[in-house]
Design a protein around this nucleic acid. Sequence first.
RNA 1: GCCGACGUAGCUCAGUUGGUUAGAGCGCCUGAUUGUGGAUCAGGAGGUCGAUGGUUCGAAUCCAUCCGUCGGUACCA
Length: 471
Amino acid sequence: MSIKPTLSRGLRDLLPEQMIARQRLIDTVRGVYENYGFSPLGTPAIEYLDVLSGSAGQEAQQSIFRVSNPEDEALGLRFDLTVPLSRVVSQYPNIPLPFRRYQVAQVWRADKPDPGRFRQFTQFDLDAVGAPCGRADVEILAAICDSLTAIEAGPFLVRFSSRKVLNLLLKRAGIAEHLAGDVFRVLDKIGKIGIGKVKLELSAGYTDASGDPIRGVGLAEEQVSIIEEFLAIKNKSRGDVLQRLASFLAGIDGSSEELAVMEDISGNLDALGYHSDQVNIDVSIARGLAYYTGPVFEAVLLDAPQFGSVFGGGRYDGLVARFGGPEIPATGASMGVDRLLAALEHIGKAGQVKTAAEVLVTVMDPGLSRECMLVAFDLRRAGIRTEVDVSGGRLGKQLKRADKLGIPYAILLGSSEAERGVLTVKQMAVAREHGAGIEENAAWKSARFGQQEVPRAEIVDVLRQLLGRGS
RNA sequence: GCCGACGUAGCUCAGUUGGUUAGAGCGCCUGAUUGUGGAUCAGGAGGUCGAUGGUUCGAAUCCAUCCGUCGGUACCA
C-alpha cells in the first residue's frame, strides 16, 4: 500500500524558484532593518495556548493550530510574532529597553485559504518595545518605505491613522464604546466595498450578491452621516487632512493632544524626506482590533492593490502588560512575505531564477572527469556558484538542463580542449537568440553560438568578468 | 464558518440519448545526432475519469454523501 503524496489544505511546498526569490527579498529587507540598528530575535513555533490566546479574542482562538506533546500540555502554533515578542519582554526583565528587534519566521492560522493567503506563512516583523516616543513610529514608517524601495516593488503607498482619532470619532457621533470593534471593522473595508455598502453595513445591513445576509451594526442615521463626513476627510496632502480633522473634531475632549501626535509624526516624516506621495494619512485605516492603541499603519503596492496590504502594524501600548508586568509601550510593523511575493510575481517583478548556479561544468569524457571537477572547484573557491555534472548523461542533455534551469554559462572540456590546455565557455542565451532563423539541425549545431575558448589558467578571471564581478 | 459553481493525463480541455480497450494539444522521456540546447521527424511513459456508496445487464456520464478547487461573504490578533 503506497502513501499518497499530498499536503493538508492551506499548506504548500516552496520549490527552488520560489525559495530563491523569497530569500533575496528577505536578505534585502534584513539589510534595511539592520541599517536602522535593529537586532534579530528567534522564538519557538510552539507556545503555551494561554500565552497565545490570552491576547486573542474568542473567535481568534479558533484559528490557532493546536499541538500536543508527551506531557499533554495545552500548546499551539504561534499565529503572529508580536505575541511571542511580548512574552519575551515580560519573561526577561533584564532585557535592555527599548528592545528593538526584527524577526522573520513562519506563523500559522487555521483560516480558509485564499489566493496569496495560506495556513502557514511567513511574517517579517520590526518592533520597538519600551518606546513611548513618536520617533519610534516614524522609524517604523520610514523602514517600511525603505524596504519597499530596496526590493524595487514599484510605486507604493503607506497609509496611517490612529486608533485614538477613531475613538474621538465615536465620541463625536455618540456611539457606544462596545460597538467600537464593529464600527472599526466596517470602516476598514471602505477601500474594498465602497462608501455605499459601508453605510448599509453600519446601519441595517444588506444581502450580498450570493444571497448571503450581511448583518448591520445598527447605528442611527445621524451617526452614519457623521461617519460619512469623517470618511470624506482625505487629501493628497497630510497637512490638509490634519487641518480638516482638527475642524471636524473641534471641541471634542482630548482631540488637540491626539492630533498633535499625528502632526509630530507627519512633521518628522517631512523633515526626513518621506512626503505625502509615499506616506499619507487615511482615516479609514483601523487594522486589527485586539491590541492597537495609537497610530496604525499599512502599505499597499499601487501596481497590485488587489493583494491588499503587504505591511501592517501599529502601536500596542497595552500588550506586554497582559503578562502581568508594568505597561510597556511598543510599536511595530509586520511584512506579509507571502503576500508581497505573490503580488510581485503578479506584476512581473519576482525573480525567475530556478537555480542558484551561475555556471554548469559539463562532463563529456569520463577520462577528464577529475579535471572537470578541478575546474568547478577552482570556480567555487573564487566565489562563483558552480554546478558540475553528476548525471552522467550526454552533452546535449547537460546543456538542455542548463537551458531549462536558466544557468547562464556552460563550460565544455573534452579531449579537443584538453590537448590545447583550454576550456570552451558557452553563453547559453546567445544561441537562444540566434537560433530562431536556423531550421536545419546540422547548421544550428555547427554554428556554436556564444562560444569562446579560454586558456585553462584564465577561466576564473574570464568568468568573473562575464558575471560582472570585480577581480 | 456561510452561499454558489466546478472536479477527466503534469497543464488546458474533448468525450453523443448511460454501451466494447477514455482521447487531443501542449509539456515530459527516448532515439534519429554516442562533442552542442532551439526547430524537424519517429517512438514512449503517464488516468482506479476527486473518493465512497447506490441505481443499472452495463456508469466518466444518473443519484447520495464526503473530500478538494474556484468565486462571493465572514474572519484576519
